[in-house]
């Protein structure tokens, strides 16, 4: 969570400094506990993960190295997307780590499909899938179709809904009319839980339970977390549409402060250890930024410009 926050702050700083990051920067500030609590349930190489925009902490918890984030944001040719796509649109699908497209809710059925194929092959074992959406994505047809299909197929899929109260600038009141998004679980015939997403312990408990139920064959699991996005939609957005009073509510608590305070109170960690941990985080991120900055960027003359894997079907003007 703290690595995620520091890494994202660094991305924000690089964006504001200009020149290094082409395109936007989209942060998950305030959503780290909710995202990480799901990510830690997953085993890279065994489970399927389809994160969305504000899941930097979940990606790290799943096992994505810091360098993959930076290579994608900085457009390094060495990165997983090789400059063909950027920022949060990254993954390694063959390793069960899906690369989101911008169309919200559309990864849900894809993660479901990966699980479906494993069940067909007989290799599902106790693998699970997990994917994230926000309050805004729950309004899409893709979300509904994917959720319903996953329920019909009874797939071991966790769907996390981070209700950060604003989809870009649109408040919940213009997004849905049910009382709580978790009410939808009943309609889909799946188990649903609602948690205070500013509280890491509640998030961990909820996702641990969801993972266990999914593994036990109980089908899709919805976990809704209420929180407030503590940043703009992207770094270009000052989020002036969020009224001040909202910023002083329970949902606006910083989940990292809450978790750190709790861990110190419990005696799991000392203030000094937290300071030392942050020094390590700073070193890791700074060194990785320095390393990636020296890496090659994509070269249009070396790019193969092939949208198909079957070279002989690539049309004339693109064929090499």
């Amino acid at each position: 969570m703290r690595l995620s926050r520091f890494l994202e702050e660094k991305l924000g700083a690089l964006y504001r400094a200009g020149g290094r990051i082409v395109g936007g920067v989209y942060l998950g500030k305030g959503q780290e506990a909710f995202a990480a609590a799901m990510g830690v349930q997953l085993r890279m190489g065994q489970d399927i993960y389809g994160p969305l925009i504000r899941d930097q902490a979940g990606r790290l918890a799943f096992g994505e190295p810091v360098i993959e984030t930076l290579r994608t944001y900085l457009g390094a040719a060495t990165g997983p997307m090789k400059g063909r796509d950027g920022n949060i649109h990254r993954g390694r699908p063959r390793d069960g780590y899906m690369a989101m497209i911008s169309h919200l809710g559309s990864l849900l059925s894809v993660v479901a499909g990966a699980l479906f194929a494993r069940r067909l092959k007989g290799t599902l074992g106790d693998s699970i899938g997990a994917t994230s959406v926000g309050d805004g994505a729950t309004s899409t047809g893709a979300f509904h179709e994917g959720m319903n299909l996953a329920a019909v197929e009874k797939l071991p899929l966790i769907v996390s809904i981070a209700n950060n109260q604003y989809a870009y600038s649109t408040p919940n009141t213009r997004q849905y009319a049910c009382e709580n998004l978790v009410d939808r679980a009943k309609g889909y015939g799946v188990h649903g839980e609602h948690v205070d997403a500013t509280d890491l312990v509640s998030c961990l408990t909820a996702f641990r339970g969801a993972a266990a139920r999914a593994k036990a064959g109980e089908g899709p699991q919805i976990v809704v977390g209420t929180l407030l996005r503590l940043a703009g939609h992207g770094e270009h957005d000052d989020a002036s549409y969020i009224p001040d009073r909202k910023r002083h509510t329970h949902e606006a608590r910083d989940c990292i402060d809450v978790a750190a305070k709790f861990a110190v109170q419990q005696g799991w960690v000392t203030e000094e250890e937290l300071v030392r941990q942050m020094e390590g985080i700073r070193r890791l991120v700074d060194q990785t930024v320095a390393k990636v900055s020296k890496e090659p960027v994509p070269d249009p003359f070396k790019e193969n410009w092939q949208a198909l894997s079957t070279s002989e079907l690539v049309e004339g003007q693109n064929a090499s």
Binding site: S109, V110, G113, A114, A142, E145, G146, L149
Partner: peptide
């Protein structure tokens, strides 16, 4: 399948990623 063309194709893509 349910009457869900979006999810039908999405499922096929996810399955194809897994080698189906």
């Amino acid at each position: 399948s349910p009457i869900s063309e979006d999810a039908m194709v999405g499922l096929a893509i996810g399955a194809a990623i897994e080698g189906a």
